[in-house]
Design a binder for these strands. Sequence first.
DNA 1: ATGAAAGCGCTAACAT
DNA 2: ATGTTAGCGCTTTCAT
Lengths: 327, 327
Amino acid sequence: MTTLADVAAKAGVSKSTVSRAFSRPESVRAETRGRVLATAHELAFTPNRIARSLAIGRTGSIGLFVPDIANPYFGPVIKTVQRNARRHDLTVFTADTDEHDEDEHALAQTMAQQADGLLLFSPRMSEAAILDLTGRLPVVVINRDIPGVPAVVIPSTDGMTQAVEHLAALGHRHIAYLSGPATTFSNRARRAAVLAATQRFGLQLTQLGPFEAVFTGGIRAGDLLIASGATAAIAYNDLIALGLMQRLTERGLRVGNDISVIGFDDIWLAPMTQPPLTTVRAPAAAAATSALRMLIDIMDGRADADRRPTPLASELMVRLSTGPVAR
Amino acid sequence: MTTLADVAAKAGVSKSTVSRAFSRPESVRAETRGRVLATAHELAFTPNRIARSLAIGRTGSIGLFVPDIANPYFGPVIKTVQRNARRHDLTVFTADTDEHDEDEHALAQTMAQQADGLLLFSPRMSEAAILDLTGRLPVVVINRDIPGVPAVVIPSTDGMTQAVEHLAALGHRHIAYLSGPATTFSNRARRAAVLAATQRFGLQLTQLGPFEAVFTGGIRAGDLLIASGATAAIAYNDLIALGLMQRLTERGLRVGNDISVIGFDDIWLAPMTQPPLTTVRAPAAAAATSALRMLIDIMDGRADADRRPTPLASELMVRLSTGPVAR
DNA sequence: ATGAAAGCGCTAACAT
DNA sequence: ATGTTAGCGCTTTCAT
């Protein structure tokens, strides 16, 4: 491996000059700079980031934690964060926590030392664990509310209220909410919104679950839903809604006619299903962007600068998986 | 931030002892070790990985590059690699190259300095770029064939041959192949396999595309397929096949009856579609596991050790999107 | 504009 | 078993 010193020797200058030629080019005479850069190129030299990090105390990268990288919902999130970070010369390291609570903290600890900041999407780890991390480096959480920890939450109340209102307008009197992972912030928020709205619109609510936030969770939910007698269901997320539709269809029900289904997230698959899925569009990418901006502000010491998060809203996308109640 | 030195001072020992207490605990007297570890804990000290990396010349992490993190196909791949790497005390940094050829190399260059090895899945970057990387650190590529570069390829010939054979047996005489990204190794391999098999079984082959390897690519393919007059199509991957089915249905055709569709990958969605998708199961996770093993061998200097890759096979999963040719 | 030297936090011979 | 010392490759005062 070629180092600064090699280049310096060959170019007949000091290490400092080579260093400067890379980091503050204008501070070195054009001629010298040219010679240095040329020999650097000739020697195929690239500055060692590790050494650089040690010297300046920053790594130039951030960690992004998502609960399930296989969930189509997170694809756009990851891509968006990566694209925006790049503009700030930050590399993003994405880690999948796989809903695996203990590992999540261990992994975060590791990451905490090779990153300048952390973006935690729907973290499941304990509050204590998160507070521990925030003590070590800048952290912004998405979809979690912990006193003192900078956060962006994806709103669910407006969309969920619209969902219930929509079902009420279609004549449904008894609906079900299909819980996702029981203890998560997201599930609590969505369930509370549905509960409040059903009371407001005078609907009967049955709560089913919890179900894992995956397709097979929805499959399992199908039979429970039928047994419940509800004429419509609002699922924790689209993956569950998709599995649900599948199972209902297998059971001979026509989704959108005999029974209505609403999801949450609006993943790219949602408009493509048969029938297309009515769902709440949650602005995940926007939330992630907003969170990244906050994180960078904190990392740059602009801690209290414009810390008003971008106002976000969720919104019901009406498609064909919901229809007038069957009589 | 607390350092080794702080702990050493407070515990009344030298830095080396503290260092040893962490890295080779048995080499330090139990009593001393206890005292050191206690004060380390008390001071909330965690060894700085960056400094450690610089000193030992290894980072303890590897980079995993995938073309599209949003493709459900890669979810299991990423999870598998992460799980296996963890057993070797390696952290995995996943990067999405987003089919963005230039960036891919730049990102890889960056990663090359904070990782001990690289796993490149279906890389699109130039051969020169890959060779450049292999000169810097251990690299294993998946689904690409470059002389001198360790590789694992996911077989497509057997599965594709079975696919064509299957269609021939169903009475199809004219089929279409829907190309993915034109220049990729994977597309060339799959197309060649289909071509050879159609010749062998005496079928007429129409080649359509190239299409982007996403759902909307398949949508666009639908009308072209109908115009071609073929009675069945084999798509580059499942995402294209899904979009295709969607469009064919919109055009009033009954997939599996009026026209047959075969995909490639066998993503988790494939059995869930209406009708369930006949597709070639490609052992991506197994390939990734095998590639990781090779990478670790190379990193550990066991370069030429058991370098026989695990034999892999692809296999047709027959479902309902294929059926006897309509007469 | 350039150089010399100290130091980032850790590890690894080499001593003792 | 523990301490001393010299780096790992880079940045950054402080001189010149």
